[in-house]
Design a protein around this nucleic acid. Structure first.
Lengths: 337, 337
DNA sequence: ATGAAAGCGCTAACAG
DNA sequence: CTGTTAGCGCTTTCAT
């Protein structure tokens, strides 16, 4: 079966391909009558324009890339939801790339975009991303990049974040108010923007509460779940174990809960726990988990909307459009006084 | 800044674009020496081939589409993980489309693929999909379609599923073994393949356990969470309320748990619950949830691998490559005897 | 082993 | 208002 192209339409209607093309794009200098004839036939023959021909010619693809560490994570899956919904509305297509927290992989993925494969990029960097050259190479080629959640400070472009500093502060303050005096923070990276901000908020709160900051209350977790589990158990077995724990990423929640359960430590009686998490099931956990809930959907939505806003314009100053959408502390039993 | 194309390479190396193109694709009739020179320069200049030009010429795009109802669902997000990992390995790109369980949306999305935008499609249909014309239009144009999880019987192509019938059977049998004699099934659709299979398994198990099938023990839930919540509460307030519940989709778990909690019904003492679910946090719920866990990652992986296997070949009989990957009953406290 | 030329399907400039 | 022409960047005969 031969595909139906503009040429098919043109010849059967005794028009030139140019006219058909213009008619389809609803150009002003085509008569209404012709437009109707063209559209009618196109409809009948199920004409669908060839995206690749059109992209090659117009040098844009109506496609954006979303680059994230994981998809099986409620923050990112909700964010994708937000992104897809705007994309659909604007007629854009969404390519998905997972870095699995690998910097190398992130670089390889972004390198692909140099070809003009996508009109823009939404990215949340890995926990291992230390440089920003791979991103600068894109912005240098005028491929717009919008960060969401996990950003790179070095790059001067739009960033959609949540108030991580305040989140860290509030979580800590909340634990203090519930009676904790020995609060640990679980971190996954030293380079990650969100980790740092949350930690800074934590430290400030400690200070404001006149608590002493102890270096070994910052627990450096890794990507390896078993290691984290062992590490946590070791820490919780100390006679002076923390009486409050802040998990700065969602995936550590399970680990903490299980470690405490294994050791017979009661939550919240002996340890209270707050997680930065978007788990829908937080309320169903035992005990229900106090969370700092990020506006995941909204962040994805805002990032995509911003990207598209700029894609229309000739010159658009992305830097000026950064946005901070606040998180919400949702208090549940895991921190009950 | 001007993009670096094959022409750039050709002129600086005093070669023709044809030679460069062949060198880059490692053609047999180019000398090793030339290949090396070309590759070296390409590397230096960060040459990335223009996907659109190449796709237009070759009539294939190294891109596949994944069409699913939701992404904020652990089954689908794990499946995407499985898909992306094969895609990456094979050098394919992954476009993501969410139907949000809307048949209309699904049709609109698939219609777009007629243009040859993607080389193949992986799909899990909506709960509302009743026809299959939109899918047949693709297969008729030789755009391969592989179903995973939620299939359409009408279309004769590859299908990667799990043993839903057995899942329904085993879940029911398990509840019976735990003492339940009045088992309800929560369903979201009558047309959905997985719902039907699970229900058939349920009915067979009832029969084998000499339990009477009661029409009103099939609870028809909707996409509206509040309605479901109200419906469940109404049912659980009946004096003869079910003593066992099977949730055939993950999202109903929260609803059931909350409804029981609200009514003060003890799980598992007064009601036992099994969910078809891939929730990582099942073990952390209160009480820990017995699940029929689907091999989500593996199914995505298998579906993608199969698609790619066929994309290489001239003639490939997708129908013959269907695969059923078994689910696993994971027994936890929500069904404790 | 290399190159010239044609063309994938579409759109933009320019004529008429 | 419509048509002619050229070309986006790449691949593929077919010559040489």
């Amino acid at each position: 079966m031969q595909a139906v192209t503009i040429k098919t339409l043109a010849t059967t209607l005794n028009l030139s391909t140019a006219t058909v093309s213009k008619a389809l794009s609803n150009s002003y200098d085509i008569s209404e009558e012709t437009k109707l004839r063209v559209r009618k036939l196109a409809e009948e023959l199920h004409y669908v324009p060839d995206l690749y021909a059109s992209s090659l010619r117009k040098r844009k693809s109506k496609t954006i890339a979303v680059v994230i560490p994981e998809v099986a994570d409620s923050f990112f899956s909700q964010a994708i939801n937000g992104i897809e919904s705007v994309a659909r509305e604007k007629g854009y297509h969404v390519l998905i790339y997972l870095t699995h927290e690998s910097y190398e992989r992130e670089k390889a993925i972004l390198n692909d975009f140099q070809s003009g494969r996508v009109d823009g990029v939404l990215i949340s960097v890995t926990a291992e991303t230390t440089g920003a050259e791979h991103i600068r190479e894109l912005t240098d080629k005028d491929i717009p990049v919008v960060f969401f959640d996990r950003i790179c400070d070095e790059i001067d472009t739009a960033k959609i974040t949540t108030n991580d500093y305040e989140g860290g502060y509030i979580a800590t303050k909340h634990l203090f108010d519930c009676g904790c005096r020995n609060i640990a923070l679980l971190s996954v990276s030293d380079s990650l923007s969100i980790s740092n901000q949350r930690m800074l908020g934590y430290m400030q709160a400690l200070k404001d509460c006149s608590l002493i900051f102890a270096e070994d209350n910052i627990i450096h977790c890794t990507q390896n779940e078993l290691n984290n589990y062992a590490l946590l158990k070791k820490i919780m077995m100390r006679e002076n174990h923390p009486d409050g724990i802040i998990a700065t990423v969602e995936k550590l929640t399970t680990t903490v809960y299980l470690a405490c359960r294994e050791l017979g430590l009661q939550i919240p009686a002996q340890v209270k726990i707050v997680s930065f998490s978007n788990l829908q099931s937080a309320v169903l956990l035992y005990p229900p988990l106090t969370t700092v809930t990020q506006p995941a959907y909204e962040m994805g939505n805002a990032a995509a909307a911003l990207l598209f806003k700029g894609l229309g314009k000739k010159k658009f100053d992305y830097k000026k459009e950064s946005l901070i959408i606040p998180s919400l502390l949702e208090i549940r039993s895991s921190t009950a006084g």
